[in-house]
Write a protein that binds this DNA or RNA. Structure first.
Lengths: 207, 207
DNA sequence: ATTTTTACCATACAAATGTATGGTATTTTG
DNA sequence: CAAAATACCATACATTTGTATGGTAAAAAT
């Protein structure tokens, strides 16, 4: 696994990307250390060395905030779309995933995550619309308020995830729909993954 | 002329903007000094103080590369047009519509496309929301119904582009806002680029 | 079972960075 | 014309920043 990234390293990479897009200054070692509660910068330095060795970042030595993201080089990368979701309907998986999308590299796509195309307007209350591509990470433990893709009795849904009193609730953004409460006895229930991003290609879409 | 900027100060401001968009790191005092041939950083410091006093930049004290540009909406305006625009509030609202958007954060600038982080909800009718990142390509010829980023006087807007009878119209998704008609005589109008995509990171955003 | 990797700690240090102070000469403003 | 602003200089100083070195404990790989 020369390219394998550890969870902590991924968190640090996320932080760097976040800083860069949001505050749009790459962070200093000290800022990263503070954010993660490290008592010194040396720890961060070692993580950055690991990330550099694995090709995720490039560092300009002796340059403050000199962290470059190597995933910058390519702005768009083709990615396969695995299937489609529409609330109420089964999750359709394309057998050969013929459909692909040019995904911008700013969109975080961790190793095992996959793409689904949204059909219909059932998610419009979550600001996700027909034709949008959602990025789903199956290896994240869903936390409250996360959007998750879940399978309920053969039907795939995209809803907000909440835990309460040992049972799981799936909330819709539209208050007219009552939350679905998953009791322990529930048979066919499975959280497929957490929605970590949404991408919409606009250029051709003249609506 | 408390807001008047000297030629040298303008050059330094240009350099900061350039650095920020091109190498996308704000420069340090030393880098600015080197570029202009100053023998010390104190000279640069005084220029930055002047620029700050005049409201062009904001500095985070004791933060390396902590130069913030307050005139953000000018980042992506071609310089020649910029020069004629009076400095002032970065977000002047166009009289005919509230439908302007604050686009302060250029996150990345690869060969052609760049990113803007959307602030505010004025684009919600176009399904673009606060915090979303829009991908803008300045090298595409806008066609009818394309979303474009345009600068009108001092205001940056994201609207649908239409051509009719030789004049250009900018339509809002919200029908309550009347289209802005750009006549040939219009002074400060410039299409910055075409919006080719929208990306939203969701995982951490508990909204 | 041993080695390697991971994930932290502490301390030290040179260079970079922002700032402060004081000075000179020129240009602009009142 | 006098006063203020501009545009540089030099030197000094406390932090910040990146890096280096050495160490510990646990997990993962061989």
């Amino acid at each position: 696994m020369s390219k394998g990234i550890t969870k902590i390293q991924e968190k640090i990479l996320d932080f760097i990307i976040d800083k860069r897009i949001g505050a749009w200054l790459p962070p200093t070692l000290a800022e990263i250390a503070k954010h993660f509660g490290y008592r010194n910068r040396a720890t961060v330095q070692q993580h950055l060395q690991a990330l550099e060795k694995k090709g995720y970042i490039k560092r300009n030595p002796k340059l403050s905030r000199g962290i470059e993201l190597t995933i910058n080089d390519k702005f768009f990368v083709p990615r396969p779309i695995l299937g489609e979701v529409a609330a109420g309907n089964p999750l359709t998986i394309y057998p050969d995933s013929i459909d692909t999308v040019e995904l911008p590299t700013i969109a975080r796509m961790p190793k095992d995550s996959f793409l689904l195309k949204v059909k219909g307007d059932s998610l419009k209350d979550a600001y996700i619309f027909n034709g949008d591509i959602i990025i789903v990470n199956p290896n994240i433990e869903p936390k409250d308020a996360h959007f998750v893709v879940a399978v309920l009795d053969d039907a795939a849904v995209v809803k907000r995830f909440y835990r309460s009193n040992g049972s799981i609730e799936l909330h819709s953004e539209n208050p007219e729909y009552k939350p679905i409460v998953i009791k322990k006895t529930y048979g066919n229930f499975n959280v497929v993954g957490v929605v970590i991003g949404v991408y919409r290609s606009m250029e051709r879409k003249a609506v």
